[in-house]
């Protein structure tokens, strides 16, 4: 799997929700090799401060015109610098990296997307991928944010025939509570998904994992961790194998989020 390092031209960089920005970049080599769920490492400026690159998953890939989009939340020095950049500026990018999303198993029709906060980012590309498939999946999106102002482009999912369930921690929009509360309630009262995809902060993913184990569900989880290299050499982004282990199983050792992930398969292998 080749990795490219490109000087990518920023085509647009705009605020799309409270604290959330969207950037489109021209990077033909990376865009044509990438698939949804993979990520790239961004060097936010040509200096050693901040020191490390920042990982961002692709939100949409536009292979035809050699561009891709990312969604990012401004949380620290690196993302603050990025949010001040303009169209025409360049960023040094390494990618595509990691294992992205795979198609669901053949039997699956009812698909749930579980997105927490900026974890919504890779679902745009995943939806593109699933909608290109001949099977007409029934897709339900559970999308949680701290507050309604932070929700990004819900209409994209509505326009692409998804059932959208919004959850906010403060109740300003949709269900008042965590996305995992909403998922657990819906799962109990009505139907069970054939397959799920989830991406979000670690505490959310922990609850998703418990829910998946309890209901014996299969799916894929996109994990987020601190990274230094993004290519599998520093071994800094590791996550315990036990996180993904089934009930009562104890597994020792670690998996690299940047290489074995960021998307991990849960339940039976597809």
């Amino acid at each position: 799997m080749p990795i490219f390092q490109e000087k990518a031209r920023i085509l647009k960089n705009q605020r799309v929700a409270q604290g959330v920005w969207e950037m489109r970049l021209q990077a033909p080599q990376i865009a044509s090799a990438a698939y949804p769920g993979q990520f790239a490492m961004f060097r936010v400026r040509d200096e050693l401060s901040p020191l490390l690159r920042r990982p961002f998953s692709f939100s949409r890939l536009n292979t035809a015109d050699g561009t891709f989009d990312i969604l990012y939340k401004v949380v620290g020095q690196g993302t603050r610098i990025m949010s001040a950049l303009s169209a025409g500026d360049y960023l040094d990018i390494l990618g595509p990296l990691g294992r992205g999303f795979r198609l669901p198993p053949k039997h699956a029709r009812e698909i749930w997307f579980l997105a927490g906060g900026i974890g919504i980012a890779p679902f745009f590309g995943l939806l593109d991928m699933l909608r290109q498939h001949e099977i007409g999946f029934n897709i339900t999106l559970f999308y949680g944010a701290a507050t309604g102002e932070e929700l990004v482009r819900c209409e994209f999912f509505e326009q692409n025939n998804c059932t959208v369930n919004i959850c906010t921690d403060d109740g300003t929009c949709g269900f008042h509570g965590f996305i995992t509360d909403s998922v657990e309630r819906t799962c109990t009262l009505t139907s069970v998904p054939d397959y799920f995809y989830s991406c979000g902060p670690h505490p959310m993913q922990q609850r998703v994992m418990e829910w998946a184990k309890c209901n014996n569900l299969q799916g894929q989880m996109s994990m987020e961790t601190m990274m230094a290299c993004g290519v599998g050499v520093c071994l800094g982004c590791s996550i315990s194998k036990n996180f993904f282990a089934g009930e009562q199983k104890i597994e020792t050792g670690y998996l690299r989020v940047c290489r074995e992930g960021p998307v991990f398969t849960i339940g039976d292998r597809t």
Binding site: S49, L51, L52, M226, C234, L235, C237, T252
Partner: peptide, 23 residues
């Protein structure tokens, strides 16, 4: 060797603290 439990990295001013544990 499996290495140390995560988190294994912290970025600091001009530096990187690691505790990989020789995985």
């Amino acid at each position: 060797r499996p290495g140390n439990p995560p988190p294994r990295l912290v970025e600091t001013h001009g530096g990187l603290i690691n505790a990989i544990g020789l995985e």
